[in-house]
Structures are given as structure tokens and as C-alpha cells.
Amino acid sequence: MKIRANNIDIEIEDTHPGDASGRPVVLLIMGLGMQLVAWPPALVQALMDAGYRVVRLDNRDIGLSQKFDHLGQPNLVWASLKYKLGLPVKSLYSLHDMAADALAVLDVLQIDKAHVVGVSMGGMIAQRVALAAPARVLSLTSIMSSSGARGLPQAEPHVMRVLLSRPAGKDLSSIMDHYVKLFKAIGSPGFPVDDAELRLRILAASERSFHPAGVTRQMMAIVADGRRAAELAALRLPALVVHGKADPLVPFACGEDTARRIPGARLIGIEGMGHDLPAGVVERVLQPLIPHLNAAGTAR
């Protein structure tokens, strides 16, 4: 359903709308260009079975949430050059804004506190949520993400080439071929997904919404968020960092760095996991995640 939060329209899914039972809430925040439907149903169901109310959202500029085409398109080449030179990068909106969106969703749903779980860019937004409103965060879980610190290992060159490339055409077949190539490039070598399953997922997501312009603006917001790493030391909350040891897009060292920067954070490395959430990875993520949520809820 669509709600008005932070003065924009945001699409959400809430497993227990209006729940008054006191069921603890898990807020799930997806990554760059990914919609709320990208959360594996098995993960959402496992959280529900464990007694949690699960809230998902389409981040601004993607999915069924409000688009920001009126802001124009950033120059990623120029921004990348400035970043490499250590110069400040300006974005059309920020990860702070996207964190404010997430907190506003909780406000509209009258949720005082929640466990915040994010993957990739969603992990960065989750970190920003925790920094902006630590009293409202029961626990933080950052999956396949990064602190954004300078000097961390970058994505493998062939992965960046695919990520920054465009479909050969505007027809659905070209779009699907492009995203199959991308998801296979960043996927988990220990948990491969066959092309037919990938195509079904891509088709479902594309039919729901296809808005590549929003991905570029979200990417700029990531590049511009240069101070988060130094701020993470201020966090005092239960934190779990989960990262694939075979991640070709956001290398494992980025997860190690995030865990080092958050006091008391626990790091879980998963062998064979890349930058996706196939069934085998979901099982391994849930093994530490649900105990983490349970323990954090009791402690807080």
C-alpha cells in the first residue's frame, strides 16, 4: 500500500498492519535499484514465524514509490573523478534523506521502535537510520554492505563494467538479458541460481516497475555519503554484520571494516556468498539473524 511519509509517496508492505499485539517490528531496507519484492519470501516468512511484524518499503525513486525525475540526472563520471581526488561529491538527494524516509514510514505506522535490517545500499541506509535515531532502533543488521570508508577494496573490474553498462535495447528481452548478466556477475558462486529462475524474478520486477534513472540518482547518494564511516563509532546498540566471503561487488573486507567500526558488532562471514540472496544464502543469514533479533529485543 502507498503512504505519505516524509512528504513523499512511499510504497510499503506490512505483514501485520495496525497490529496492536506488541509484536516486535523488523524494518527491511533493500539495496540499490531493488524493490521491496526483492526480499526473498522465505526470509520474510521465517521472520513472521519467529513472531515478528515485517515492514518493507520501496526506497524513493524506485519501485512504486515516488520518482525524482524532476531533479535531473547526475554526472557519474564527473562524480567518480571527484571522489577519487578526495573532493566532496554532491547528490540530488542523500542517504540521510532516505533514512528519514524509513523513519517516517515508522511514524506513519505508529511504530516507536524497530529492528532495522538492510542489504547493500539498504545496509548503508540502515546505518544512517541508527545514527539519526538510535533510541528507535532495537538492533541494526547490515548485510553485504559497507561503511563507505575511503581506501576499501572496490568491486571487481568486470562487475563494474556490467553494473555501469546499459541494456542493448529498450525491449523487454534486451532488458532481461542485461539483468541476467548483471545478477550472474554479482551472484553467489557457492549458491548458483539458474537462468530460468533469474528471468522469472527479473520479469516480475520489471512488470511491477522499471526505472533505471532512479538507480543513477541512488548511486550518486551512495558516493556522496563520505562521513558515515567515522560516525559509526558513536553507535551503542546491538549490531550484526553479515557478508559474503565471495562478494565481487562489495568485497568481504568492507563487511570486516563495518564490524570494526561499530562497537560490539558481531561479524558473520558466509562462504560462497556473493552479492545476492539465493535460497542457500537465506538459510545461512537467518541462522544468526533471528537469534540476534531475539537477544537484542530482550536486551533493549
Rank of each mutant, 00 (worst) to 15 (best):
N7I: 00
E13A: 15
T15S: 15
P17E: 14
A20E: 15
S21T: 15
G22L: 02
R23E: 12
M30T: 02
A38V: 10
W39L: 07
P40V: 03
P41N: 13
V44A: 04
D49N: 12
V54H: 01
R56D: 03
D58P: 08
L64P: 02
K67A: 15
P74V: 11
K84S: 15
K84E: 15
P88K: 11
V89G: 06
K90F: 04
L95I: 08
A99K: 04
A99R: 04
A100N: 07
A104V: 09
S120G: 06
G122P: 02
G122S: 04
P134S: 07
V137A: 12
V137P: 03
S139P: 09
I143F: 01
L152C: 06
R161C: 01
K170L: 10
S174R: 09
M176T: 13
G187E: 03
R201M: 11
F210A: 12
A213F: 00
A213K: 09
T216K: 13
R217E: 02
G226K: 11
R227Q: 14
A229C: 08
A230L: 12
E231H: 10
L240W: 03
H243F: 06
D247W: 07
A253C: 10
E256W: 02
E256A: 06
D257L: 01
R266I: 02
R266V: 09
G269N: 09
I270T: 06
E283R: 14
L286I: 10
L289Y: 05
I290T: 14
L293R: 06
A299E: 14
